[in-house]
Design a binder for these strands. Structure first.
Length: 545
DNA sequence: GGTGGCTGCCC
DNA sequence: ATTCTGC
DNA sequence: GCAGAATGGGCAGCCACC
């Protein structure tokens, strides 16, 4: 029997309503066992709010704005009601559930929407190009919503928004797959690493076909990530062994697949970004999968923004190539001449990598052997001096594993000065932060008054957010619904990794990775930092490069 | 032909 | 990307 | 310690609209 959207939505609702991970896993495992081969991969992708595998070039291209338009037409709700409902839940799916209850089109006699129907419709939305494409996408969505019960609409919208908020994501889904088919979790996770698509993992788990698993050239795999540590001391004490330290480049992480004829390049999200970097289309000569970083470089490092301009560009002109050339720093090898190397120790992988004798624009990431706190500190400082972002530190015996599991790789990042800023506006959050003022717009002072320099949301505890909501409500001078303009009273200390020129805020600058260090109840507006200080930090960091 | 909203994806 | 929280 | 949730700035492509 074909899987229906209704049953899928009911399962999601059950998952959401329990906070126990074990129960979630049981619910999902039971559901998956009842699915056909055809429906299984689809259901698994939908559970992680995906429609296509990560490496698939298709994108549905339907999101908040399109959904709001479609809901408006389907339900006949006016702008005000739409906004109020969305604000109430902080989740467009939940808003859709409520709104669709009084939709104009009824569907009592329709056959139920299947996951396969849904997939075909979304594929059609994704595939339509050119004039009328936006209209087509909205028509597809309205067609689907017309067939949906409130609960179905809720989860359809959640999938499209990319946020399920049911307390289940890929990690728990893998556990559920292991339970559903009686497989070892380790095997299922390994499958996930290699195939990098939860739909494909599901089929492998179903068949128990783990032994046929091999990395495939031109098929991207997941990347190994590192955990952040705060000091050389912490690193030295945690590992207490010889380590490999590499500079942390501010570029784009990339997997390069090469045969003797062809090169393909994949990003961290497994997108095919080959076309953005023609100067890297030099076959290595043997079949390899490399891991490394694409870095913009011309007589020295270039800012990340220059690299971004090339990133999703369709055509790379000679001008772009001249202005922002890139190089590749390879630091790992996952596959070599038909063999997978991910379970070999880093030391061995590095030796194979170096035997390749790479030529510019391919370079080896430099590798320093460190052990003591002092050695790590020295390597870290030399990295900053050269304009890099910090240090990557790896155990020589580490296998290549996905995600942050195991802490075999760690990173040390440079700390920049913090700024004291004042909150000038606040916005309501989403999901579990619905109804709370959790997102703060802040400013520094200048001769011409306060100047906005950024927004931040992270760094406060739930309790602090609750407290802030109360205080900010009292300070509100203008209520714009979703956003509130507040009296500039509350001072925050914000940290960031960089300052960039920007037209986004009226200060002319913006922060990269802003986060709240702490609330400065002890400080008043008069004591916040100045725009001049911002300029100074900006100048200082650009001089370095 | 220019501009701005929307979307997706890089950090 | 970063940060917090529940299990 | 893991997994999940909430959310920052900047960019290009694409399409709708003037």
């Amino acid at each position: 029997m074909a899987a229906t959207l209704l049953e899928f939505a009911e399962v999601c609702e059950k998952i959401r309503s329990t906070s126990s991970k074990k129960q979630k896993i049981t619910i999902v495992a039971n559901y998956l066992r009842g699915l056909s081969r055809e429906d299984l991969p689809l259901a698994c992708r939908l559970l992680t709010s995906r429609v296509f595998p990560p490496w698939d070039a298709r994108a549905v291209n339907i999101s908040y704005s399109t959904i709001l338009d479609a809901l408006k037409e389907i339900t006949g709700a006016d702008e005000k009601r739409l906004k109020a409902t969305y604000l109430k839940y902080g989740d467009l799916g939940s808003a859709a559930e409520e709104l669709i209850q009084d939709k104009k089109v009824t569907t009592l006699l329709q056959t139920p929407l299947t996951l396969q129907n849904l997939y075909s419709a979304l594929d059609s939305a994704a595939s339509k190009k050119g004039e009328g494409a936006a209209e087509h996408r909205e028509r597809v969505l309205k067609g689907l919503l017309a067939l949906c019960s409130p609960l179905e609409a809720k989860y359809l919208v959640k999938v499209l928004c990319g946020e399920m908020r049911i307390g289940l994501d890929e990690g728990l889904l893998e556990e559920a797959l292991a339970v559903a088919y009686g497989r070892g979790l380790k095997k299922v996770r390994e499958a996930g690493l290699v195939v990098a698509d939860i739909g494909e993992s599901a089929l492998i788990a179903l068949d128990g076909a783990f032994e046929t698993l091999k990395l495939k050239l031109f098929h991207p795999t997941n990347f190994m990530l590192a955990e952040e540590m705060s000091s050389p001391q912490e690193v030295a004490e945690y590992f207490r062994c010889e380590l490999y330290a590499e500079y942390k480049y501010d570029g784009v992480r990339a997997q390069i697949h090469s045969s003797d004829k062809e090169v393909r390049i994949f990003s961290r999200r497994l997108e095919d970004i080959t076309n953005s970097f023609p100067e890297l289309h030099i076959p290595v000569g043997r079949e390899v999968i490399l891991d490394g970083e694409i870095v913009p470089y011309k007589d020295g490092l270039l800012p990340f923004q220059k690299l971004q301009q090339r990133l999703h560009r369709k055509t790379i002109t000679q001008d772009v190539l001249n202005e922002t050339p890139v190089v590749y720093f390879a630091f790992d090898i996952l596959y070599y001449n038909g063999e997978t190397y991910i379970d070999k120790p880093l030391k061995e992988r590095r030796a194979i990598l170096e035997s390749l004798d790479l030529k510019p624009p391919f370079y080896y990431a430099n590798q320093m052997k460190v052990r003591s706190e002092d050695e790590i500190k020295e390597a870290f400082e030399s990295s900053l001096k050269l304009g890099y972002e910090g240090l990557m530190i790896k155990r020589p015996d580490s296998e290549y594993t996905p995600g942050k599991r195991g802490k075999k790789w760690v990173k040390l990042k440079k700390e920049l000065a913090t700024l004291d800023v004042v909150i000038v506006a606040a916005e309501y959050g989403h999901g579990k932060r619905a109804g709370l003022l959790s997102d703060y717009t802040f400013a520094v002072k200048s001769k011409d008054g306060l100047k906005v320099i950024g927004k931040a949301y992270s760094g406060l505890t739930d309790e602090e957010i609750l407290d802030m909501t109360e205080k900010l409500n009292k300070l509100t001078v203008k209520d714009l619904g979703h956003k509130k303009i507040v009296e500039p009273k509350i001072v925050l200390e914000v940290a960031f990794n960089n300052i960039q020129r920007s037209s986004r805020h009226d200060s002319g600058y913006a922060l990269r990775f802003p986060r709240i260090k702490r609330i400065r109840w002890d400080k008043s507006v008069d004591e916040i930092d100045t725009l001049d200080k911002v300029k100074e930090i900006y100048e200082q960091q650009t001089r370095k490069k």
